[in-house]
Write a protein that binds this DNA or RNA. Structure first.
Length: 620
RNA sequence: GGCUCCAUAGCUCAGCUGGAUAGAGCAACUGCCUUCUAAGCAGUAGGUCUUAGGUUCGAAUCCUAAUGGAGUCACCA
């Protein structure tokens, strides 16, 4: 017979059931196929075994089988399980007072390490943020950054060696647009002489370029050439507006004056033209300075940054190399392609006819470079779901190339962020700027904290730190609680909300514990004689015991929202407990039990939130 | 049009490796601060889990189809 040897009750119950069925009925069920849930609150008990799957196979009544299983579990549990009841095919098990005390002792002693190192120590690269250098970071980047950071933290927690990385798209048409507009209309503006943050200044010229081009395009539309083209090429009933909207790219590439100036600049850049390179370096430096400030404000950091300007050539040479091997093919115009039709995709362009590189070109180079640098076991790309197809094509191309790391690549595809008014559109100025947003949530936290007035005794710097933690806590939690794959609506009003299922609500649970601990004078003795563990205390222990499982699931699925929802559930249970149960002035045994319990709760909450990139304040 | 993803309360989201009467928060309404921080707690109200079939002892969960929405199918990223 199987005997309970750990405090992982679910696992022990599963093992006991599996062993019992094998011994008594010669019926083989894998332990992890035995369904054990926490008992629903409408019934008596703590854990529940679902009997239906066995009832059918063994042709026994649920009550009969439940009776046998219940007895087997009680007798093999080393007094941890004291009784059971059977209702409609569910076997509800009731744990003994002793088991809760043993469990508390165990989770308290291991509270700092509970759930850690459950995965093999492998090297994972997590790529996130990966901005273009032509404009500042916005709300979309924030979701990306928070997801990437949190996945990185979670993987580290379960024992992986993680390297935070990004690929900065620092070259190409986009940055040339900003550069060109700055040359034309910049009046030598710099971050220093304007006081504008570097990335915002460059973004300003990106917008300026767009205006210049739109003006040029609009002027051209009324020329005879344009009108003739419209009449000649329009689809049936197509309005002039609709036609010219669709023609925009073609105009930019083939007719636009400012468009050809942009391409000229790009070619000069590739030819190492000194003036272009120097302007490029200067404007990128402004941008990086701005990005660094945003990352700092968000409290995230990177271990290794790759730049497209440094990897695109490697990509080109790899493609040339595999072209020679006959894996890729060249069209008459000189462009190079890979045929992915055998894996259900299309033909994909790898290199333009003029020899310049596209997105996938440098991606191939970057992947190779990363493998040379880190020999990673796993590579996670945090990139929005509008690029699903691109990553399929990239991964399939690398597989065709026989890259040894091709199977370890994973695209963490997340949904777009919408505003209540709909999609964010840069053209309509509805993009939510990252820096503005961060400042706003902190200001909101400051305003509420001042209303509460609990921080009077602190210095200004201490207060500011707390406002920042609360504001960022609200923002980050709001975004990360949603499953990554789902498209989400970002309501600015709700994001600064601090009541209910929010970051500050969870922080507040932690703060309440700290407040009690400060008043407890550190006195905390034995609770060996505590005889009546309360329902709320059991619930907290059940949740704490489930933390390792939640953590592992979050790591395997790369889903931080699991941790976020767990933290909320634990905080909610704590708030209820705090309200219902006296702690400091309870009888000694109860007081000791409860202080030990809430200290464990606080640690697990703090660890959970840290995995989401959220810091706990000691007061609020 | 092909392919991919999504659809749960008025709103924002959990639950989805099938299990008991589908859960939270926000918004609305009602209570609870001389007692460890009320950024809290308790309660009322709110649902044909988009629809139609199917598999199953059992379906929000799995399968098929339809509907609605999004993305993608660039010598953009």
């Amino acid at each position: 017979m199987h005997k309970f040897s750990t405090l992982n009750f679910i696992k022990e119950i599963q093992n006991t059931v599996s062993t019992f069925l094998a011994d008594s009925y010669d019926h083989v069920v894998e332990p992890d196929k035995v369904i054990v849930n926490t008992t629903s609150k409408d019934f008596d008990g703590d854990y529940t075994v679902v009997l239906f799957p066995f009832v059918k196979a063994l042709k026994k009544s649920p009550n009969e089988l439940g009776e046998e299983l219940g007895k087997a579990i009680v007798s093999s549990s080393n007094s941890l399980c004291k009784g059971f009841n059977i209702i409609k095919g569910f076997l509800n098990l009731e744990l003994s007072n002793e088991s809760w005390k043993t469990l508390l002792k165990h989770v308290f002693e291991t509270k700092d390490s509970l759930g850690k190192d459950q995965m093999p120590e492998q090297i994972s690269l997590v790529e996130f943020s990966s901005p273009n250098t032509n404009k500042p970071l916005h709300l979309g980047h924030i979701r990306n950054i928070l997801l990437g950071w949190s996945c990185s933290m979670i993987l580290k927690e379960v024992g992986q060696k993680v390297i935070n990385t990004q690929i900065v798209n620092d070259r190409g048409v986009a940055i040339c647009k900003s550069m060109l507009a700055w040359e034309k209309a910049g009046a030598n503006e710099t971050p220093e002489n304007t006081g504008i943050k570097g990335d915002h200044l460059v973004g300003k010229y990106y917008v300026a370029f767009d205006k210049l081009f739109n003006q040029e395009y609009k002027d051209w539309q009324s020329t005879e050439d344009a009108q003739n083209l419209y009449v000649e090429k329009k689809k049936e009933d197509q309005s002039q507006e609709g036609f010219f909207k669709g023609y925009k790219n073609q105009y930019f590439n083939n007719q636009s004056k400012i468009g050809s100036e942009t391409r000229e600049m790009l070619l000069k850049w590739e030819d190492q033209d000194a003036a272009v390179r120097s302007l490029w370096e200067q404007m990128n430096a402004w941008v990086y300075d701005g990005f660094d400030k945003t990352y700092e404000a968000l409290r995230v950091s990177f271990d290794k940054i790759y730049y497209e300007s440094e990897t695109y050539k490697l990509g080109k040479s790899i493609i040339e190399q595999y072209l020679q091997k006959g894996l890729f093919f060249k069209k008459e115009d000189g462009s190079i392609w890979v045929d992915l039709e055998d894996v259900g995709l299309d033909k994909k362009l790898l290199l333009r006819s003029d020899g310049t590189s596209v997105y996938i070109t440098q991606d191939i180079g970057t992947a190779q470079k990363r493998y040379e640098d880190f020999s990673m076991d796993k590579m996670v790309y945090v990139v929005g779901n509008e690029q699903d197809y691109h990553f399929q094509a990239l991964f399939e191309t690398l597989k065709k190339m026989g890259a040894s790391y091709a199977d370890s690549l994973y695209h963490l595809s997340y949904g777009m962020v919408d505003l209540p008014s709909g999609k964010m559109k840069s053209r309509e100025g509805t993009v939510v700027d990252a820096d503005d947003l961060i400042a706003e949530v902190i200001a909101e936290a400051r305003a509420s904290a001042q209303e509460f007035g609990n921080l009077e005794s602190l210095t200004e710097a201490e207060k500011e730190e707390i406002f920042t933690r609360i504001g960022l806590g609200a923002l980050k939690y709001f975004i990360i609680k949603v499953h990554p794959k789902k498209r989400m609506t970002f309501d600015p009003k709700q994001s600064v909300d601090m009541q209910g299922q929010t970051g500050p609500y969870i922080q507040n649970a932690f703060v309440r514990v700290q407040s009690i601990l400060r008043k407890s004078d550190g006195t905390n003795g034995s609770f060996a004689a505590y005889e009546s563990v309360e329902e709320a205390e059991k619930q907290l222990l059940v949740l704490i015991a489930s933390f390792p499982t939640v953590l592992l699931e979050a790591a395997v699925e790369l889903d931080p929202s699991k941790v976020a929802n767990f933290a909320y559930a634990l905080a909610k249970e704590f708030h209820r407990f705090y309200h219902d149960v006296r702690i400091l002035n309870a009888p000694d045994e109860a007081r000791n039990f409860r202080i030990t319990l809430i200290e464990t709760v606080a640690t697990i909450l703090e660890r959970s939130m840290r995995l989401l990139g959220i810091d706990m304040p000691a007061r609020m």
